[in-house]
Amino acid sequence: MAEHDDEWEAGLEDDSSAVLRAVSRQIKLWREAAGMTQGELGAAIGYGEEMVSAVERCKRLPKPEFLDGTDVALGADGKISAMKEDVKQARYPKKVRDLAKLEAKAVERGAYGDHNIDGLLQTEEYARALFAMRRPAFSEEQIDRHVAARMARQELLRRQPTPTLTFVQEEVTLRRPLGGRMVLRRQLEHLLEVGQLRHVVIQVVPTECEDHGSMGGQFEVLKMHSGETLAHWEAQLFSRLVSDPKEVQVFELRYGIIRSQALTPRESLAFIEKVLGET
């Protein structure tokens, strides 16, 4: 396995829980040292006793304002507030953080989606609907965490200098009403807005297309600032980063073919507008 693959596989086991346990433990230790009960701390910072208990038991993630308020109430002199960045990073699953780091270094990203809208193009409510229907079911906290991670990745759309972002979506992803008709309508409207950005290209593959260059599922190709090209794909419970040049070449070939078979960018936006009118 190539070096990048080793790093990716090692990151599949989420390490954020250890960080959150350490933060929760520190809050409890500072509270006890100050001689305050959970109820008293909650009253001092504007939260209920149950919330303080949940944070100390690592059942809820403390928000920045929770940490700042706790820092002042317990006289921690910035030591609790200083943990905000650690908590922010730990909110997101490790494999998402790793992918986001790679995407942040890319000068070009091409993605093919065959069963839902690409994560960088999703509205928050569309993303929430996707995570809410996962099986086994996620808890509300897990859903919040995954949605926040997905929204954070979308910083790539606004990054300077802007990377070139291309997306190829199957027609079915534009018509499947995940989350309900209104969620889909707002998602389609969002696609039309993002599609106007000069560094973004969205193409659609009509279902009636007889030839298809990628029947093996969704994937993305990342061209890095270093000149290296990587590929990434997910299937059910597995996720893989591909760095072997011969394997990456296969993904590049397939992506090139599927783009040539899709509607042009102008035709694609017109197609999305048509689907919106029918939804």
Score class of each variant (00 low, 15 high):
126 Y>A: 02
128 R>E: 11
129 A>S: 15
131 F>L: 07
131 F>H: 12
132 A>T: 09
134 R>C: 12
136 P>K: 09
140 E>Q: 14
141 E>V: 14
144 D>F: 07
145 R>F: 04
147 V>R: 03
148 A>S: 13
149 A>E: 00
151 M>P: 02
152 A>L: 12
153 R>N: 04
153 R>S: 07
154 Q>V: 12
155 E>W: 04
155 E>L: 11
155 E>C: 04
156 L>R: 05
156 L>N: 02
156 L>H: 04
158 R>M: 11
159 R>D: 02
159 R>Q: 14
159 R>M: 12
160 Q>K: 15
161 P>Q: 06
162 T>S: 15
166 T>D: 05
168 V>H: 01
169 Q>P: 00
171 E>R: 03
172 V>T: 14
173 T>I: 12
173 T>M: 08
173 T>C: 15
174 L>F: 13
177 P>N: 05
179 G>F: 05
180 G>F: 02
180 G>A: 13
180 G>V: 09
180 G>M: 08
180 G>N: 07
183 V>W: 06
185 R>N: 02
185 R>V: 15
185 R>D: 11
187 Q>P: 04
187 Q>S: 08
190 H>K: 05
193 E>M: 11
193 E>W: 01
194 V>A: 09
194 V>H: 00
198 R>N: 13
202 I>T: 01
202 I>W: 00
203 Q>N: 05
204 V>M: 10
206 P>W: 02
207 T>L: 09
208 E>T: 09
210 E>Q: 11
211 D>N: 09
213 G>V: 01
213 G>Q: 05
214 S>F: 00
217 G>H: 07
219 F>Q: 01
220 E>C: 05
223 K>P: 00
225 H>G: 11
225 H>Y: 07
226 S>I: 04
229 T>Y: 02
229 T>G: 08
230 L>Y: 10
232 H>R: 09
233 W>R: 12
238 F>S: 14
238 F>L: 13
243 S>P: 00
243 S>E: 15
243 S>Y: 02
244 D>R: 11
248 V>L: 08
249 Q>P: 00
250 V>G: 06
251 F>D: 01
251 F>I: 00
252 E>A: 10
252 E>Q: 14
252 E>P: 00
253 L>W: 13
254 R>H: 08
255 Y>C: 06
256 G>S: 05
262 A>G: 05
264 T>W: 07
264 T>D: 04
265 P>Y: 03
266 R>T: 14
266 R>S: 14
269 L>A: 10
270 A>W: 02
271 F>C: 01
272 I>E: 01
272 I>L: 12
